[in-house]
Nucleic acid binder design. Sequence first.
DNA 1: CGCTAATGTGAGCGCCGCTCACATCCTAGT
DNA 2: ACTAGGATGTGAGCGGCGCTCACATTAGCG
Lengths: 194, 194
Amino acid sequence: MPPTNATYHHGDLRAACLSSALELLEKGGARALSLRAVARRAGVSPAAPYRHYADREALVSAVAAVGYRELAERLAAAHPAPSTPEQLASVGVAYVQFALEQPALFRMMFGEPCDRDNDERVAATAAVSLYLREIVARCFPHADAEALAPAIWALVHGLAFLHLDGKLDAPTPAAVADRVTAAIHGLLSATAGD
Amino acid sequence: MPPTNATYHHGDLRAACLSSALELLEKGGARALSLRAVARRAGVSPAAPYRHYADREALVSAVAAVGYRELAERLAAAHPAPSTPEQLASVGVAYVQFALEQPALFRMMFGEPCDRDNDERVAATAAVSLYLREIVARCFPHADAEALAPAIWALVHGLAFLHLDGKLDAPTPAAVADRVTAAIHGLLSATAGD
DNA sequence: CGCTAATGTGAGCGCCGCTCACATCCTAGT
DNA sequence: ACTAGGATGTGAGCGGCGCTCACATTAGCG
């Protein structure tokens, strides 16, 4: 752990900003994530974070990257190496659950137009994408993974967002899970018979 | 047209704010949509818009409602009364095209957490939802429209967002359309055989 | 030990959301 | 026709924000 002594220099302000940002985001939504608030929370002057993040968007990208890592962990936790449609569906459910449990983070990962392509962020996105394609290829060796993987991602992603926005009535998390499972199975049985 | 005379009173500031907001949104993205900028563009003092919109979010909701109406028109224009999977797919393509052509507006419609449920906005959402369900029921009389419609919406919605965020490589609009069509057909043939 | 680059400070600019007291105008009721 | 009152726009102002810059402090390296 970096020394949090009360020296002039903070020790590891970069990491402190990142964790403060995550806390602020969870507590108050995207609008509460300001560089000034982060600085305040880290006990540092308003200009200090600019030594570590070029601007607000850079911080947001870093936060999003953390979100991608967390999402990847969640998916892996749902099933380490899915190889059947049922297992793949459980991964899809985990995706939607992640979105519902961390709405602000999920929105930050996808909601804002990523103008400047932060390297870290691009890499994280690519990782998720490849991971998905790999799973699909394993679950449906006879299908065109190149085409099927994006479709499944889109289906799950859309379910996540629509539930997040309250466009789909989801009385309980279990109902959400059922809907996700049903939708995935529907799509999959089609391509499997292809 | 309301008289745009140079009187003390504007005439129809409410509508002027709304159209200014749409212009600002198209030109500079969500971040450029500020009540002050809207007031400036309407040639009015910064506090004037507050007579017509309680706060920024109220304006955003009004903008989103306009977006929903435009989207509904686009879907209807794609096919007035789709009754086959192909026709439904063309509606899905129109949905994604709308998102790609008006990214900022689309994000405004879905991207921000709708805390207070603006009536206008809720109604517009419900309209889209019902419209979709109706179409699905007509295209697939033997399927469970209650379950299928959300799945299709989610699939198309997810494709729209992922393309918007550049998560899916979409070299040309035609490629996007192909992907959307293929994905919808896949999902549909599954439920049709059900 | 001293020099340099890295890091944090304080002040400040312009923009924003929002509020309030006040000015102006429209209109309905007499 | 006249006036009271509600609706609408103004101007000033508060606090917060992103961002920049000159300056202070420090750590680490020769």
